[in-house]
C-alpha cells in the first residue's frame, strides 16, 4: 500500500509539473463543447423565412403569425412567386412558404446545406401543422428535441470523445513514456506488482476526467441549454463507468505500443476515428450499411452515446439503460483482464 501511494504521488507530480499539458487537458473539453455546441451546428436557429401568398384566408393569416412569433425563425415578409429563386439564391432567406389558392402549402428550401435544410423543412412543417384539427399531408412529430438542437446529439458524443482522448490517450502515453525512458525496466525489477503500477497511473487521470466531466455537464446545461432530465446519480454512474473503460482501453494500447508515437497513432487512428464515425455522434447509426452497423456493436462509445442520450434527453433511469450499462461493464472487465494479462506476459 505504501508503494502504491508513493507511486500515485509520483504520477500526480508528473502531471502537475507539466503545466502546459495539464492546461490543454483541462481546456480541451471546454473548447470542444463550445465548438460542437455553437459553431458546428445543424440546428434551427434564426432561419429566415419568406412567404408567398396567393389568397388570404384566416388559416393563412394564422400560419403567418405562427411563423412571425416563432423565436427560432426570423420572418422576412411577403414576396412575389417569381422572386422565390432569387431570394433563395441570394441567401436572404433559407426557406419560402407558399400558400396556394387551393389551400395547399408548399415549403421551398435552399438545400445547399442539406442537413440544415432538412431540419428546417421538418421544423417549418411542424410549425405549420401545429394546432390544426386535421394535420395536412406531412405529419412529422419530433419528440424530445423539437428544435432539432444539435447539442442534444453532440454533447453525449463529445463526452464520449473527450474521455477517450484524455483517459485512453494520456494513460497510454504515460505508460509508454516509461518504456521509452527505460524506467519501466527498473519498475519491473522492483517488487511493486504490475497491477499497482497500472492502477496508480489511472488514479490522477480519473481525477482529471471527473473535473472534465463536471465542466462539460455544467457548460452543456447552462450554456448550451442541454436538459438533464434523468437523475444525476445514474448519469454520473454511467459516465464514471465509461471513464474507467477508457482508462483500461489506454492501458491495453500501452501494452502493445513501444513508442509514444505509435501510441498516439493507435489512439488517434484506431480509436478516435471509428469512434467519431461509428458511434452515432456524427452519422445516424440507422443509415449505416449493414457491415458497418455490425462493427458499431463493438464500439464502446456507441453504447455510451445511446445510454447517455436516454438519460439526459429522455429522462430514463437505470432500468432504461441496463442493457447498455451491462455491455459497457462487460467491456471494461474484459479489457482490464486483457491488459493485465498482457502486462504480466512481458515478463516472459
Amino acid at each position: 500500500m505504501n508503494a502504491f501511494i508513493s507511486f500515485v504521488k509520483k504520477e500526480c507530480i508528473h502531471i502537475l509539473r507539466d503545466v502546459r499539458t495539464m492546461m490543454i487537458v483541462l481546456l480541451i473539453p471546454v473548447i470542444l463543447t463550445l465548438l460542437f455546441g455553437f459553431a458546428i451546428s445543424t440546428e434551427i436557429n434564426d432561419i429566415s423565412v419568406a412567404v408567398v401568398v396567393n389568397k388570404y384566408t384566416p388559416d393563412v393569416r394564422r400560419d403567418i403569425s405562427a411563423l412571425e412569433q416563432n423565436p427560432y425563425i426570423s420572418y422576412s415578409g411577403i414576396i412575389e412567386e417569381h422572386d422565390i429563386d432569387a431570394v433563395l439564391r441570394s441567401g436572404k432567406c433559407a426557406a419560402v412558404v407558399m400558400f396556394g389558392r387551393d389551400g395547399k402549402r408548399n415549403v421551398v428550401l435552399d438545400a445547399s446545406n442539406s442537413s440544415l435544410s432538412a431540419s428546417a423543412g421538418s421544423y417549418i412543417t411542424a410549425i405549420l401543422n401545429n394546432d390544426k384539427p386535421m394535420p395536412l399531408p406531412i405529419a412529422t412529430y419530433m419528440r424530445h428535441n423539437p428544435q432539432l438542437k444539435s447539442a442534444y446529439n453532440f454533447v453525449p458524443g463529445i463526452i464520449g470523445l473527450i474521455f477517450i482522448l484524455i483517459c485512453a490517450l494520456m494513460t497510454c502515453v504515460s505508460v509508454v513514456r516509461e518504456k521509452e525512458m527505460g524506467t519501466m525496466e527498473t519498475l519491473l525489477v522492483s517488487p511493486i506488482r504490475p497491477v499497482l503500477v497500472v492502477l496508480a497511473k489511472m488514479v490522477p487521470y480519473l481525477c482529471i476526467s471527473l473535473v472534465n466531466l463536471a465542466t462539460i455537464l455544467l457548460l452543456s446545461h447552462y450554456v448550451l441549454e442541454m436538459p438533464i432530465h434523468g437523475n444525476l446519480p445514474t448519469l454520473l454512474g454511467l459516465c464514471v463507468l465509461y471513464i474507467l473503460l477508457s482508462l483500461t482501453l489506454g492501458l491495453l494500447v500501452s501494452t502493445l505500443a513501444q513508442t509514444q508515437m505509435v501510441a498516439l497513432l493507435i489512439c488517434a487512428m484506431v480509436m478516435m476515428m471509428p469512434m467519431m464515425m461509428l458511434s452515432g455522434m456524427l452519422f445516424p447509426l440507422e443509415n449505416l450499411p449493414p457491415v458497418l452497423k455490425q462493427i458499431t456493436y463493438v464500439i464502446p462509445a456507441r453504447w455510451f452515446n445511446e445510454a447517455i442520450r436516454k438519460v439526459m434527453v429522455e429522462g430514463m433511469g437505470i432500468t432504461g439503460i441496463w442493457k447498455e450499462f451491462s455491455i459497457l461493464l462487460a467491456m471494461t472487465i474484459a479489457l482490464f483482464a486483457a491488459s493485465i494479462k498482457k502486462f504480466n506476459d512481458r515478463l516472459e
Binding site: 509520483k10 507530480i13 509539473r17 507539466d18 527505460g182 524506467t183 527498473t186
Partner: peptide, 10 residues
C-alpha cells in the same frame, strides 16, 4: 540500468 531510470521531472 544503462539508462539510469530516474524521473527527469522529479
Amino acid at each position: 540500468s544503462q539508462r539510469f531510470s530516474l524521473y527527469d521531472d522529479l
